[in-house]
Design a protein around this nucleic acid. Structure first.
Length: 576
RNA sequence: GCGCCCGUAGCUCAGUUGGAUAGAGCACGAGCCUUCUAAGCUUGGGGUCACAGGUUCGAAUCCUGUCGGGCGCGCCA
């Protein structure tokens, strides 16, 4: 139980007793009562808004109600003193032993410190990456991959049962294009001269080894055969090869999915038909026509009868087709079936999507709501684009020519840890600039460096202590730590709260920002030793104080490791 | 035309889901290295939280509208 949860319970108990004494009407809505660290540390360690939230219902004014609550909090052993401030906040200053205990708790908890049971084992399915299996991963996919993976880890940490899933779009026309492109490479591998790759096919040379493999396996059996003889086979086999490629790219980032779900399988299983029938039974399907899209009207627009889903009943702007006029499934039709499949095994769904799919969020949420009768919630996190720079100059990319920056190139240049960290240094839905020069810069401006540097300092501190023969056995006396040192503990003690809040909000970037703050607080304390040598961590003349300070440093190091671990980043023992 | 996201210091961005005097970094000014790593730290100036209304004890945060920017719109995937 976190410190904050403990105090929330204390306040609850105080309110109960006020009710029992008849000082407070029973049954007031307490949902908005919060216990938080105040923004300004001078206000104390904790603050509660209880009096302000409840005053109206209690038909009194906030400060008067605070006057009833505060004395009861004062009676707690953990509380040093309270004061009523501003419009009716109750500020609580905790006794120093609380922070000494919390420091100990961090050390005892180790890797587990910050885990919580918030999720109560609820099943969450996080679907992320889901890049089309038509080529290697490039930078466009990278951010969603990292955000999804960090979110999955975060939720796991917060007590959810997480499935990491990848949806393979292996049913659409682009897979035909892929198969034809591979067939060309296959003929090339057989010695044919294929010239330039025709417009509309995938030109990337990652298909060359695939063609070679096919040539070895099939000989010239399909070289001159009509498409009907090889297309299905080449589709399946090329998709497999691409998935292998993608999996190895993801592995470079340390990302491993539990499940790869195939769109083609979903369609073949009849799930889409069942979904259509379910919706039909609910009266949500009709045959009709769509209006031409507004804005630029396509020249080839013709109204036709389509099988439409009444997604407008669930907040969409337009009803959406489930089936095309030729009877095949639309992407949405199959996707609805896929989401129902996921919903059958989860209590909560999360999709990580690129910004280019933001327009389709409403319809799929409508579909999930209709199909699960609102039982399962679908959150779609939109991940915005990454703009690549090299020392301030934009990096030119063109997918058409196959000249895009691959994930592999980036990881090989700057390293997995840097990529993962940087991808989490901005809110997911905001665009992010990635500058190859800046992300490896050793400066305050680079959060990866800055956080790693704090950890490296802590590691070097312990190495040094060992070298200099400090006795580190046994428990230290943490009451030797002064106010500045305990204030660092206070920052560290926020970690479990940050994890829970980030998990609830589905916002892994909060961990990165928090670590940056924690590192800043540590660097600041460290540097006090510059002005005042008695503030240094290692003091030959005070072994007891040294031990206490080393424990403090260990705890900070632990939090940094835990936080970085959530982000999938390894902590540095030393900086090169 | 419509939808989604966004608009916070000169620049790049946070802002604990409605809390107190809105915070960081960069840049600019002033300091701190015979050291456990100064790759850092301290400190100063810098704000109409796009604008206008509304909701309430209280709004950068919620609602409505306006202006500006990004992404998108299809029987594509």
């Amino acid at each position: 139980m976190t410190l904050y949860a403990r105090f929330a319970a204390h306040i609850d108990a105080v309110l109960d007793s006020l009710e029992a004494e008849g000082q407070l009407p029973a049954g007031l809505e307490r949902r908005n009562v919060a216990v938080e660290p105040p923004r300004d540390a001078a206000h104390g360690d904790l603050a509660t808004n209880a009096a302000m939230v409840l005053a109206k219902g209690a038909k009194t004014n906030p400060r008067a109600l605070a006057g009833l609550i505060a004395p009861k909090l004062d009676e707690l052993a953990e509380v040093e003193r309270t004061e009523i401030a501003g419009p009716g906040f109750i500020n609580i200053r905790l006794s120093p032993t609380i922070w000494q205990d919390e420091l100990r708790a961090i050390l005892v908890g180790g890797e587990a410190y910050g885990r919580s049971a918030l999720g109560q084992g609820q099943r969450v399915n996080v679907e992320y990456v889901s890049a089309n299996p038509t080529g290697p991963m490039h930078m466009g996919h990278c951010r969603g991959a990292v955000v999804g993976d960090a979110l999955a880890a975060l939720l796991e940490h917060a007590g959810y049962a997480v499935t990491r899933e990848y949806y393979v779009n292996d049913a659409g026309a682009q897979v035909d294009t892929l198969a034809r492109s591979a067939w060309l490479r296959y003929r090339e591998a057989l010695g044919e001269s294929i010239g330039d790759i025709p417009e509309g096919l995938y030109p990337g040379d990652y298909l060359v080894p695939v063609g070679r493999k096919f040539a070895e396996e099939f000989g010239d059996r399909y070289a001159a055969a009509p498409e009907s003889e090889w297309l299905q086979l080449f589709r399946r086999r090329t998709v497999d090869a691409m998935l292998e490629l993608i999996r190895s790219d993801l592995a470079l980032l340390g990302i491993h999915h539990d499940l790869f779900a195939s769109e083609a399988d979903v369609q073949a299983s009849g799930a889409a038909d069942r979904v259509l029938q379910t919706l039909r039974d609910k009266g949500l399907i009709y045959e009709g026509q769509l209006e031409a899209p507004k804005g630029e009207t396509p020249e080839d627009w013709e109204p036709v009868e389509l099988t439409l889903f009444r997604s407008t009943q669930f907040g969409d702007d337009q009803d959406r087709p489930m089936k095309k006029s030729d009877g095949s499934w639309t992407y949405f039709g199959a996707d609805a079936a896929y989401h129902l499949q996921k919903a059958g095994k989860a209590d909560q769904l999360i999709n990580i999507w690129g910004a280019d799919h933001s327009g389709t969020v409403k319809r799929i949420q409508a579909g999930v709501r209709a199909l699960t009768d609102g039982r399962v919630e679908l959150d779609v996190k939109i991940v915005n684009m990454v703009r690549l720079f090299r020392a301030g100059e934009p990096v030119k990319m063109s997918k058409r020519s196959g000249n895009f920056v691959t994930l592999r190139e980036v990881v090989e240049e700057v390293g997995k840890d840097v990529v993962r960290f940087i991808m989490l240094t901005r809110r997911a839905d905001a665009p992010l600039d990635f500058d190859f020069a800046k992300v490896v810069e050793a400066s305050r401006d680079n959060p990866v460096f800055y956080v790693q540097y704090a950890h490296a300092r802590i590691s070097s501190l312990h190495r040094k202590a060992k070298e200099e023969g400090f006795d580190l056995s046994g428990e230290s006396d943490l009451s030797l730590l002064d106010e500045d040192e305990l204030s660092l503990v206070k920052v560290a003690a926020q970690y479990p709260r940050i994890v829970e809040a980030a998990a609830m909000a589905h916002e892994p970037h909060r961990i990165a920002f928090y670590l940056n703050d924690l590192a800043a607080a540590f660097h600041a304390l460290w540097n006090k030793g510059n002005d005042d040598p008695s503030r240094r961590f290692l003091l030959a003349q005070s072994p007891e104080l040294t031990r206490a300070r080393l424990e403090l440093a260990s705890a900070i190091g632990q939090i940094i490791r835990n936080g970085l671990g959530l982000m999938g980043v390894a902590a540095a023992e030393e900086m090169q």
